[in-house]
Design a protein around this nucleic acid. Structure first.
Lengths: 336, 336
DNA sequence: CAGCCAAATGTAACTAGTTACATAAGTTGA
DNA sequence: TCAACTTATGTAACTAGTTACATTTGGCTG
């Protein structure tokens, strides 16, 4: 193996030397080829090919001040609600030539701060996070770097960062109200961990309706199918009477539905079920689950566009409230 | 608004000037703080704070030659099988200080080549792709740039890039064989688009078992719950007789299961069902679906480690075959 | 108190591009 | 035929860091 073969990547100067031109000319071939005569252009192209030259992204970035990278921090990729959001976000950013770095936090503010630091280290031009509850380290980082950052899945006009999201409390109240209107008064509420999760807390707060005779029984569990199944088992064996189950996310509702099915209970004739998210599965399951539609695809688009305006034109976006609607399906029966 | 406020980010020189030291000293405070006296260090730190100084990632990268970014190209984020893979990949890469840029291709080789180019443009140190079927543009790009690239979800020792994945043909044959062993001879096969998808094609090829009396009826559909539901409707109304359904992915199987349920057919007493993927939902659904477990989390880890060795130590990984196993659950009945 | 060494800091040359400005060559018109 | 202009190319100074090497400073020893 000769010295030459082990040598590192060719740079602009190497190409210029090989083609017998100046670095400026090579740069022109790359960026404004029409400004270079066909003859020289071909010669430079050939040198580029034979040296396997690929321009350094870092060197370009240092000049333009742009990395064209946006970072997103989400609790997990395992819940389709985030995957769908990221999918829309990635697509829309891509339309504007921006790339998306995804970092998962497992819902841990410490990990979030760490990964946010890393995203900044790699030169992310903007950050997208979930919710408005973050660690002091994270808050300091954002205020110190003044990096364009948008909080999603949560609307709060008073927050220090622009928020693009929905009213989580309203979403759960809509679901609850539907149960109430159908005559339900004893309701098991199955929700994810409330610690460090302002979306969950907001959804729980939305259930604090002061109504005589209304009883809710809360069961906390992890947001997985299995978590939903375990929680409804607990609810059933707790001996409390309830005619309906309300889940704070569709993954839980799906787990509940499966477990009820397994136990021989039929939705909605034995128990009613409502939820929040409206993942595709809630439209396909049997019965279809009545759930509050969270427009995460729309949120992804709006977030992407807001980010683009912010980093491209320096216009800090206003917070945006995205409307939610209750999707009526077959999982709720009237209590007569 | 004064000139000063609209000015752009502070750089090393600005900090040095403000602290009354040289750029080298500021750089030392950042990288080897112990080499700087407490006094100067504090002074520099203060200047950094007050100027909101954040070191430029690009300038760092230009010196180190490292961006610490890895790019992954997947067909979609909407299928949990890819989300789970990326999740494991991101986690493992993160342990080594690498960030993951995710790009979706919608299974289109043209988009894949485009996004690969963009990943290279932003300085990705390595690429991870799905399968071994790519556009000529993509192939040229990889061979020209010699960028470390690993093909996943597919094992093929003879491919030009290292592959880390499973034997897709074997996976589907395992599922089929299980049906055959249970006495099934008429089998509806529901699969995703075979165009541009070598995983699907390999899975279909695994079904070409030469066995007297064995009949398979193929139905192509899009890989969504709804796609599965539509396909099984078509299979039922096609008038062909089958005692079992084999799906090439769990999302389809789930759609089939829901639709069969909707039609009042019971799995497995009326129809048996097998699949490939082993998403969590197949363990929770009723009945649990017998499906071939694809170890995507393990694949994510192995891919991450291979990438790290490649870019960190220059050791190009060998292809790795990851074993698949049939996960027995309750969706298959014996034909007697 | 000179001499020596280590610690602290500075100078300037790197990394790999882009680009303003200068210059050379070739074309056109008076 | 020479000024005026266009076109093509080169020179060198930027971008924002890192780092090898040089220099200064201070403490300790003989």
């Amino acid at each position: 193996m000769t010295e030459k073969e082990t040598k590192k990547r060719a740079n602009l100067r190497d190409v210029a030397r090989a083609a017998g031109v100046s670095v400026a000319t090579v740069s022109r071939v790359l960026n404004t080829p029409e400004a270079v005569s066909k003859n020289t252009r071909d010669r430079v192209q050939q040198a580029i090919e034979s040296l396997h030259f690929v321009p350094s992204a870092a060197a370009r970035a240092i000049n333009s001040g742009r990395t064209r990278v946006v970072g997103a921090l989400v609790p997990t990729l395992d819940n389709a609600i985030f995957a769908r959001f990221l999918s829309a976000l990635e697509y829309e950013l891509g339309e504007f030539g921006l790339s998306l770095v995804v970092a998962t936090t497992a819902g841990d503010p410490g990990i979030e701060a760490e990964k946010a630091q890393r995203l900044i280290d790699i030169g992310a031009e903007a950050l997208i996070v979930s919710g408005i509850t973050h660690s002091p380290d994270f808050d300091n980082l954002i205020s110190r770097t003044r990096l364009p950052t948008i909080a999603t899945s949560y609307y709060d006009d008073g927050y220090s960062l622009p928020t693009i999201g929905y009213d989580n409390a309203r979403a759960s109240r809509m679901a609850l109200q539907y149960l109430i209107d159908a005559g339900h008064r004893q309701i098991a509420v199955i929700h994810g961990p409330a610690d460090n999760n302002d979306r969950t807390r907001a959804r729980l707060s939305g259930l604090l309706v002061d109504m005589p005779g209304l009883e809710t029984f809360k069961f906390e569990t992890k947001i997985t199918l299995e978590g939903g199944a375990t929680a409804i088992q607990n609810a059933l064996s707790a001996g409390t009477h309830f005619t309906a189950v309300m889940c704070t996310s569709d993954v839980l509702a799906q787990g509940v539905l499966f477990e009820l099915h397994r136990q021989g209970m039929v939705v909605p004739s034995n128990v009613s079920l409502v939820s929040i998210d409206d993942l595709p599965v809630s439209g396909q399951s049997v019965p279809g689950i009545t759930t509050v539609h969270l427009p995460v695809v729309e949120m992804g688009k709006k977030t992407a566009n807001a980010v683009i305006r912010w980093i491209e034109d320096g216009i800090r976006p206003d917070s945006q409230l995205i409307d939610v609607t209750l999707k009526l399906r077959q999982s709720v029966a009237e209590i007569t």
